[in-house]
Each structure stands twice: as structure tokens, then as C-alpha cells.
Amino acid sequence: MSEDIAERLKKIVVEHLGVDADKVTENASFIDDLGADSLDNVELVMAFEEEFGVEIPDDAAEKILTVKDAIEFVKSNQS
């Protein structure tokens, strides 16, 4: 299940940021490594919420800086 979450999440990142799949490693930073800006991040968080049925409050979203951060958040908050 957790691998499934990681794969689904990486797919969203690839689609929204238009980056190559092999660049989307768990340690990749959305802004520093994947070329996202602050608006891209807002859109990504919305896409994660939609895909996984979770709510990511603004203060939590600010702490999601890497792919791994996002996976962890989804894992621990998905009902």
C-alpha cells in the first residue's frame, strides 16, 4: 500500500511539474530540484488532496518540501 502511495504521488508530480520521472526521487525538493515555484506547490498540494482524499492545512503544506515529506504526510493522515 505504501509503495502504491509513493508511485501515485510521484505520477502527480511528473504530470504537474512536467519533469522526467527519474528526477522525482524521494529526496527531491520540489523547489530546488524539480523547478517548482510557490504557485506550483499550491497546485501540487491540491492535487495530493484530491488524489488521496486528505486535507492538507496551510501550515502543514508549508512543511512539505520534498517528495518524501509528501509521502509521509499522506501515509500518516490517510484514513
Binding site: 504557485l39 499550491v42 497546485e43 491540491m46 488532496e49 484530491e50 486535507e55
Partner: peptide, 10 residues
């Protein structure tokens, strides 16, 4: 409103 895209305006 949480589903309104950050790129809606631009």
C-alpha cells in the same frame, strides 16, 4: 474554494 487553482486568475 479549496479546489480553486492557484493559476485560475493568471
Amino acid at each position: 474554494p479549496r479546489r480553486v487553482s492557484p493559476f485560475f486568475i493568471t
